[in-house]
Design a protein around this nucleic acid. Structure first.
Lengths: 221, 221
DNA sequence: TAGATTGTTAATCGATTAACAATC
DNA sequence: TAGATTGTTAATCGATTAACAATC
C-alpha cells in the first residue's frame, strides 16, 4: 500500500505539468531537478520528493525526460480520463467558464448546461443548448454525469449539490460563494472562491506598506 | 514588532469573514471558538491561534462578539481600503470577473478596463467604457491605479505586468495561465489559475476510486 | 462565586530541506 | 571510469493541536 499523498503535493502537480509543457514547447527534452527547481522557485529536493510519491521517473546522472514526465503527471492527474461534466448556472461567470476552459481531452467532456432563467434557456454555448433546471434530473438519470460545475448563486448551491450527489455526481467544481459541505466520503469538491482570493490580495497589497515589510519576503505564494 | 503572520493564516481570514457575515445575517451576535470551529470544520484551537496573531478579540467566559470580529477581520484584510483597480483583457472571462465581483466597498474601486481587440474597445461594462491598450500608459500616469486584474492570454501577461509595475501598480490578480514572476519585493501577486484547480479536481475524483480510498479521508480541502 | 472560554505555552504532527549512498 | 544526479533517509522547520492558567 503506497502512502497517501498529501494535498500539498497534489496541488503542485498542475504547476509541474504547466512548466513541463512549456519546456516541451521550447524543445527541451531533458531536465534535472536542480534546473527545474530554479525555474519554478522551489528546491530540487522538494521536486524529487514530490515525484517520488508516484514513482522513480528520473535517472541518476541524467535527470528527467521531459516528455515522459509530462505524460506521467498528466496520467497521475487523470487528464486521460473523460468525466462527463455538466455546468449549472449559465450567467456571466458560468458562460465564461464554459467558453474559457479547455475541457475536452483534459479529463472532462462538457455534456450539458442548465439554468433556471428562461431568458437563458435555449442559448447555445459551446455547441450546447442551455436546458431548464427542471430537465436536470431526467438528463442526469439518462446521461450519468460524473462532475458538476456550480456557477449558481450562493443560496442555490447546497440544495443543487445535494440533489446531484443523489443523482450520482461525484465531483464538484464550486464557484458559488459557499462552502458546499458534502458529508459524503465519495464526493470530491474543489472550491474556487474568487472572492476569498481577492480579499487575500487586498491583505497582501496592504501588507506591502506595513512597517515590518511584506510577509514571507518576496515569495509570491 | 509583531511576528510575521503566515500565509496559511491569511488564507483562512476570508473564510472566517464569510462565516461571520453569515452568522450576522442569521442574527447571531456571540460565538465561541468551539461553536465556530464546528461550523467551519476546524479546531477551536486553530481559530484562537489564528485570531491571536492580530489581537485578543475575544473575552474569557463569553467568546467573540460577531459584529466586532467581523469588523476586525474586514479591517485586517484591508476591505476598508479603496485601491484603484484596472482590468486588462475584456474577453469572456474579464467581462465575467468585472460583472460578477463586488469591488466597491470591499477594498477596491474599478476605474478602468482595457483590451487590445478593437471590437471590444468602447463596449460599456459596469458603467465603464473599455479603452484601447494604447491608452493604458497615459491612463495610469494620470490615474495611478494600485491594482491590476490580468485576464489576458498567457503570452501577453508578463509583458503587461512588467509595464504596469513600472507605472506604479503594486498588486496583481492574475487569471492568465502564467505564473507572473515579479522580481520585486514591493509587488503582491495573487494567482488564480483556474486550470490548475480543474486538474486538482480531476485528481480528487480519480482518487475516489483508488484502492486505498480517497486521500485525506473525507476532508474537502 | 462558579462556569465558561479565552489567550498562550508546550507537545505533536507533518511538510520541507539537507545530506548522501546508489547508480546511471 | 568519473561526473552527475537521482531516490531516499535523516534533520529541520513550521503549522496544528492539546493543555491549562488567567480571567471574564
Amino acid at each position: 500500500m503506497s502512502k497517501q499523498v498529501s494535498i500539498s503535493v497534489i496541488r503542485r502537480l498542475p504547476r509541474y505539468y504547466r512548466f513541463l509543457g512549456e519546456l516541451l514547447k521550447n524543445g527541451i527534452h531533458r531536465i534535472s531537478s536542480r534546473e527545474l527547481s530554479s525555474r519554478m522557485g522551489l528546491t530540487a529536493s522538494q521536486i524529487r520528493q514530490d515525484l517520488n510519491c508516484f514513482g522513480g521517473f528520473g535517472q541518476q546522472g541524467y535527470g528527467y525526460n521531459v516528455e515522459a514526465l509530462y505524460g506521467e503527471i498528466g496520467h497521475i492527474l487523470g487528464l486521460d480520463q473523460n468525466y462527463k461534466t455538466i455546468l449549472i448556472g449559465v450567467g456571466n461567470l458560468g458562460r465564461a467558464v464554459a467558453n474559457h476552459m479547455t475541457f475536452d481531452g483534459r479529463g472532462y467532456e462538457l455534456i450539458g448546461l442548465f439554468d433556471s432563467n428562461e431568458k437563458v434557456v435555449g442559448d447555445v454555448v459551446r455547441d450546447i443548448a442551455v436546458m431548464d433546471m427542471d430537465e436536470m434530473e431526467d438528463f442526469c438519470i439518462k446521461n450519468k454525469p460524473d462532475v458538476a460545475i456550480l456557477c449558481t448563486p450562493r443560496e442555490a448551491a447546497q440544495r443543487i449539490a445535494d440533489k446531484l450527489v443523489e443523482l450520482g455526481v461525484r465531483g464538484f467544481w464550486n464557484y458559488s460563494h459557499y462552502d458546499i459541505n458534502m458529508n459524503h466520503p465519495h464526493v470530491a469538491v474543489e472550491n474556487v472562491h474568487l472572492g476569498d482570493s481577492l480579499m487575500t490580495l487586498c491583505y497582501k497589497v496592504k501588507d506591502l506598506d506595513s512597517p515590518d515589510g511584506p510577509a514571507e519576503g518576496n515569495k509570491n505564494i
